Computed example of a mutant assay.
Amino acid sequence: MVLHLILTLLCSVLALVSGYSTTLPISSFDEGYSHLFGDDNLQVLKDGKSVHLSLDERTGSGFVSQDLYLHGFFSASIKLPADYTAGVVVAFYMSNGDMYEKNHDEIDFEFLGNIRGKEWRIQTNIYGNGSTNVGREERFGLWFDPSDDYHHYSILWTDDHIIFYVDNVAIREIKRTGSMGGDFPSKPMTLYATIWDASGWATNGGKYKVNYKYAPYIAEFSDFVLHGCTVDPIELTTLKCDPTPNSNSILAHITPVERIKMEIFRKKHMQYSYCYDRMRYETPPHECVVDLEEAKRLKSFDPVTFGGSRHRHRGRTHHRSRLESF
């Protein structure tokens, strides 16, 4: 037990003080991942470093990391399906739901498809200790078409904060606060990638559903980075923490320049934040820091959700982050 605590603290310190390189070693699929579901709907390309996940009338598909991690930097280049993609969800996320059925943790990137002519949306979320009754979703548009080419999507997870990156630009930071309690992800997790039919909620609250006339929907993954502290799945003791190069790195804490870039991105592209959702919360969750300009902009974007209507709460069923899309 003492050794476990020492090693866990060591990994946390390394994560806090080290930088995470934009040129970290890229692993092949066989080195880092295993087939999760979908039979032949998962195809590994000949180079061994690229994978295609497809969704058709039979099934979606997915893969999972072979190792369990406690903190680290996790990244992949992803190219999303084009054309009509309503109801389709591509997910790149960390979870321990298989190990902790009732009190699992999760860190999510979810890509929400759309009708023809409308853009993909990117949604981020976290759960800690099974806190699925408190959704912490934020949703964004992007400054590019994610179906045109590959783009990098990354998660930095440390003991006290989580940062989501798109093409090495920080788009969201979640800091661990005392008021969050166990809602901050703190148990070892594995990394997943999936494509699946979320017709019931993903596009305008289920108004637009998957149309299999456009199938197969193919999501392409490459440039896998798994850089963190691996954990024994039986003993749950830390095995090792990968060393980090000293140059060309993303710092574990956002620099002033990165913070400016993040603020610019959020002003231009944020479409939803749980902190301002008056339909769900009469008062924002304790960890929220309310920005009046941000609140005003979101209210103009969606006056019902962010305007404080008294006809507020509707029941929601969660599967990871099943937030209805507006």
Rank of each mutant, 00 (worst) to 15 (best):
D40M: 13
D40E: 14
Y165L: 03
L45E: 08
E101F: 11
K79F: 08
D47T: 04
G315T: 09
T158F: 04
T305H: 02
I78L: 11
H227L: 02
T158N: 14
D223K: 13
G19C: 01
G72N: 01
V134Y: 14
N129E: 15
I174R: 10
T132A: 09
T238R: 14
L156E: 11
G308Y: 09
C11V: 05
R322H: 13
T244V: 07
M279Y: 03
E110P: 09
M180E: 08
P284V: 00
T59V: 06
S131R: 02
H269A: 05
W196K: 04
D47L: 02
Y192D: 15
D232M: 03
L53C: 07
N103I: 09
F74R: 05
A170L: 07
C11K: 11
K175W: 13
P216H: 11
W143G: 11
I260E: 12
V89E: 00
S309P: 15
G135L: 12
T85V: 01
G32K: 01
G307M: 00
I26A: 04
L55N: 06
K261H: 13
G200P: 07
G113L: 04
P188K: 00
S325K: 07
L45G: 09
H253E: 13
K49P: 05
A91C: 03
H4N: 08
T124S: 11
F326T: 14
H286E: 10
L7R: 06
N204P: 15
E119Y: 13
